[in-house]
């Protein structure tokens, strides 16, 4: 019997991407995408359920579908994209209900959670490289970090109480890619990029393709535990901006968020509270544990930045892409379903 997978956040970038990858896997019988809005991508064979993260609904779904795997992609890791209250609701309450629903079904054997290196924070006392067991240097102050730590705590409790289930937590470095939008990618796409005067932190990146590949790999390999996922090497923020063809906009070291507030309000830059410490002290993660399970990266940190820079140049030249491909879905759909299309037998 093939696997039956539930993917949360099907209406978001990561959920949509994950579903697309899983749809290609013939060993998966059932894919159910969960989301509150329309799915972010065109679904081939996954079934979409519009549902909020209330326990009553989730547990009915997990019971009725007897899913054996949950891929939890819907943790908010960028507070510029959602108000504080929604971050808590989504990350903590959503995860709590999801895990309770997983328990209620009794069929769940694997849980994969997309978390973030934000759980380590950024501070002057930090080691150059965090490994999965290193504690934070300072208590989390931002909403998004606190909610992620709390969510990971719930996942850890679940793993303790269900030793038969494989629980995988992936902590991703800063993501860059053609399609994902983060505070960092938004800032880097401008001719000027915010920096904090006198600080040039070392940053680590992971390419969006590697993010999706890592989740797929975790799904296939059933490697349980906590894993850091990020490209090899780190590079200074000034170099990141230079590769992206952006100049640094130095903000005062004292209260940089006040100085940039008008430009944030105008929608030019994103400067969420969790970004300020990162632009001061950076963050590095040791990714050997995940590599040891057999995962290979396509992009290093610098490679991810370079790929993003290429994409930026392309976007600046012919204008925003994407619109040109709108008919593709319909054409594909036609080929797949229409009786007018002749098919060789066996397909």
């Amino acid at each position: 019997m093939g696997r039956r997978v539930l993917v949360t956040g099907a209406d978001t970038f990561w959920g949509g991407r994950t579903i697309q990858v899983l749809e290609r896997d013939p060993e998966i019988d059932v894919i159910i995408g969960l989301g509150t809005q329309d799915p972010s991508v065109h679904l081939e064979r996954a079934e979409f359920v519009r549902a909020d993260q209330a326990y009553a609904i989730l547990s009915r779904i997990t019971r009725a579908t007897a899913v054996d795997t949950i891929v939890h992609t819907f943790l908010l890791v960028d507070s510029s994209l959602a108000p504080a209250k929604r971050i808590h609701e989504t990350n903590v309450i959503g995860t709590m209900n999801l895990l309770a629903a997983a328990e209620a079904s009794g069929t769940v054997r694997q849980v994969i959670v997309k978390s973030s290196g934000l759980v380590y924070g950024s501070s002057a006392q930090d080691p150059a490289t965090f490994d999965e067991g290193t504690a934070r240097s300072r208590a989390a102050k931002t909403d998004v970090e606190r909610s992620l730590i709390e969510a990971e705590g719930l996942v850890a409790d679940f793993a303790d109480e269900h030793p038969h289930a494989v629980v995988t937590v992936l902590r991703f470095a800063n993501v860059l890619g053609d399609d994902v939008v983060t505070s960092i990618s938004r800032n880097l796409s401008r001719p000027l990029t915010p920096a904090i005067f006198g600080f040039d932190p070392m940053l680590q990146f992971v390419h969006e393709h590697d993010v999706v590949r890592a989740m797929e790999f975790a799904f296939r390999s059933r490697a349980g535990g906590i894993f850091n996922v990020g490209g090899a090497g780190r590079l200074p923020w000034s170099e990141v901006a230079a590769i992206c063809g952006s100049r640094l906009l130095p903000l005062p070291p004292l209260r940089p968020e006040l100085a940039i507030a008008p430009l944030v309000r105008a929608g030019i830059f994103a400067f969420p509270p969790e970004l300020a410490p990162l632009l001061r002290y950076g963050r590095g993660m040791d990714t050997t544990r995940f590599s040891d399970t057999g995962f290979t990266y396509r992009y290093t940190s610098a490679g991810a930045v370079a790929a993003f820079a290429r994409h930026l140049r392309l976007r600046r030249s012919p204008g925003p892409a994407g619109e040109r491909y709108t008919c593709e879905h319909d054409v594909e759909e036609f080929f797949r379903r229409s009786h007018a299309v002749t098919r060789p037998p066996g397909l």
Binding site: A232, G233, Y299, T300
Partner: peptide, 8 residues
């Protein structure tokens, strides 16, 4: 040592 490969 830091690796900066795979970027082409």
């Amino acid at each position: 040592r830091p690796l900066h490969l795979a970027a082409g």
